[in-house]
Computed example of a mutant assay.
Amino acid sequence: MTAPQRADARRNYARILTVAEEEVAVHGAGASLEQIARVAGVGSATVRRHFPTRRALLDAVAKERIEVLCARAEVLAGEAESSRAALLDWLGEVIASSARSRGLAAALAYEGAPPDDLYENSDSCATALETAGTPLLRRAIEDGAVAGDVTFADLVTLLVGIVLATEQHADPAREADRLFRLTVAGLSPS
């Protein structure tokens, strides 16, 4: 059992997280940890004590958005009649949220980590999203609406690729959605 944080440590954490959210929104996953420390008024060692890795910082920044997406997966799993529609609606929402929130895609697959390494931390955003989305994928596979060899890691890789590819676009959310729909439809004409 760990001891509760001192009040100054809690304040530092909150200040660092607030600054990190702003910096990641502007600079994406590559936001400078030193700049975050400067703006937060703490030393870089304090930032690293609270967030030992860049991924830990990105996970903390993305946590609330991931919680919303996880809750949405539960709702869709319980109410959607079409397993394919439920999965695609949810994936579309993950893409839209990731395109609007710089750094979220990187929190899901930081620095090109191999799919097997995406979920190493049980508290990570990727793990939470996998836990929420796997029932939607499993149901779609069982219904024959999605190929049986599709894995959740495959979906994350596609989503992250689309979001990162459109990050510098004039309207990243719209372009990410267009590419997602193209991926789902395939290259064949209707």
Rank of each mutant, 00 (worst) to 15 (best):
D154E: 07
D123M: 14
V150W: 00
D149Q: 10
N121I: 10
L164S: 05
V150E: 01
T157A: 01
A140W: 01
S122N: 04
P135T: 06
T157N: 00
L136I: 05
D117S: 06
R138I: 04
F152Y: 08
F152T: 10
L164K: 11
T131C: 15
P115W: 00
L155D: 04
A140C: 11
G133E: 05
T157L: 00
A145L: 11
V156N: 01
G133W: 10
A128P: 11
L137K: 14
N121H: 05
G133C: 08
L159Y: 10
S124Y: 03
L164P: 01
D123S: 12
L158W: 11
T134Q: 15
E142Y: 05
D116R: 02
D149Y: 07
F152K: 14
G148W: 12
G133N: 13
E130P: 05
D149L: 14
G133Y: 09
V163H: 03
G144H: 05
R139L: 07
S122D: 05
D143Q: 06
E120C: 04
D143S: 13
P135G: 06
D143L: 11
E120S: 03
V146T: 13
R138N: 07
A145K: 09
A132E: 06
F152M: 13
R138F: 12
C125E: 12
Y119T: 06
L137W: 03
V163P: 03
L155M: 12
F152I: 09
A132M: 12
F152A: 08
C125V: 07
L136H: 07
V150R: 04
L136M: 09
I162A: 01
T151K: 10
A132Q: 08
V156L: 02
S122L: 13
G161H: 03
G148F: 09
L159M: 14
D117W: 01
L159E: 11
E120D: 03
G133T: 09
V160K: 00
C125T: 11
L159W: 15
T151E: 02
T134R: 15
S122Q: 06
A126Q: 04
D123G: 08
V150A: 03
D117M: 05
D154I: 15
G148I: 13
S124I: 05
L136R: 13
P115I: 01
V156Y: 00
T157M: 00
C125R: 14
E120F: 02
P135D: 06
L136K: 14
R138P: 01
I162T: 13
N121S: 06
E130A: 15
G148E: 11
I162H: 02
C125P: 08
D154V: 10
Y119W: 03
T157P: 00
T157D: 00
A147C: 14
R139T: 12
D123H: 12
G161C: 05
I141P: 00
T134K: 15
L136F: 04
